[in-house]
Design a protein around this nucleic acid. Structure first.
Length: 319
DNA sequence: TACAGGATGTA
DNA sequence: TACATCCTGTA
């Protein structure tokens, strides 16, 4: 077992009964949370398990992936799968030795990819929230930020109030039952999500990425975020960061013309909530956020494009 | 509901 | 200084 307290019940996978029962609206909702933040790449697969728990492929769950200490990939993360013509479910006959090896290799590649995606997404969330990736390092305020984030991510009702005055270390020492005690309905979701973060932190410690810069979509702007993690982030930087993670945020903000720096806020309330979480301003809304954007007009940082459109802005100095 | 911008408060 | 908040007014 990779991390203390990680039980076979604590891993999150898409077919987790709780998610299937209560969160199926994500599947149809346009603004569903990124699958990647559930530890899932956008493959459309239906049963990928998160790392660190000794789950094995079974007949019921042929796509559950096993991730054990011994099988942790040495080089993380790999962003692309190597071409492989054999897919596991194509094997109708009992696997021959060769097919078995290829299948195993294929699964290893998928597994590496999934872990890489999880690490990247936790990393992104850390930057956006300005908190450490290891929950053990969180203060009470960090815990509250993380809870707000998780509420937002999973569309939970407000549960953070029941976890006040807790540091990350307190949180990590709690069992799933403790979580359920504080939130009967969503304790298991929070526990599982925390488990993802703890697992990611443990994995990072074991296998620090060799070159984190190569994982980003845009080195220069990511550097802005990474070089000054304790500096207060500017709104324009925050918007850039969201725009540079289309994998996670294209449903709420996206480039219309990246070369010209023109972007559109697709979900104003969503972006405002993210900004509010980042700045610890629960009352943040688009009205206030847009006022701040308009302050950039005078400063020559952001402007309205030549052809003004609702919710469309332009960086004066595109990347 | 988005947008523009003035005024004021805050860290 | 960089917002956050509140406001009036326009489209």
């Amino acid at each position: 077992m990779g991390t203390p307290g990680c039980t076979p019940h604590s891993a999150v996978f898409i077919s987790h009964p709780h998610y299937m029962d209560t969160r199926t609206d994500w599947l149809d909702e346009d603004v569903k949370p990124p699958r990647s933040l559930l530890g899932l790449p956008d493959f459309g697969w239906s049963g990928v398990c998160l790392p660190y728990c000794d789950r094995i492929a079974t007949e019921e769950d042929p796509w559950m992936l096993r991730m054990t200490e011994g099988s942790a990939p040495a080089a993380l993360p790999s962003r692309t799968l190597e071409p492989c013509s054999i897919k596991p479910n194509q094997s109708q006959e009992p696997s021959s030795g060769m097919e078995g090896q290829m299948e195993e290799r294929y699964l290893e590649q998928v597994q590496t990819m999934v872990v890489g995606e999880v690490l990247k997404d936790v990393d992104t969330a850390c930057k956006l929230l300005n908190i450490a990736s290891d929950p053990l390092d969180w203060s009470c305020a960090h815990v509250q930020k993380w809870l707000l984030w998780t509420e937002h991510l999973y569309r939970l009702p407000q549960v953070s109030a029941t976890f006040q005055e807790l540091t990350g270390r307190d949180l990590c020492s709690m069992t799933e039952a403790d979580f359920r005690q504080r939130s009967t309905q969503f304790g298991d979701v929070l526990y599982a999500h925390l488990d993802i973060w703890r697992s990611a932190a443990a994995m990072k410690e074991r296998c620090p990425p060799e070159d984190s810069k190569s994982e980003t979509d845009d080195d220069s702007w990511s550097d802005v975020m990474c070089s000054y993690p304790s500096q207060p982030i500017h709104l324009w930087q925050f918007l850039r960061e969201l725009l540079l993670k289309p994998h996670n945020y294209s449903r709420c903000i996206r480039w219309l013309n990246k070369e010209k720096g023109i972007f559109k806020i697709e979900d104003s309330a969503h972006v405002a909530r993210l900004w509010g979480i980042r700045k610890n301003r629960p009352a943040m809304n688009y009205d206030k956020l847009s006022r701040s954007i308009r302050q950039y007009y005078k400063k020559g940082i952001i402007r309205k494009p030549d052809v003004s459109r609702r919710l469309v802005y332009q960086f004066v100095h595109p990347v």
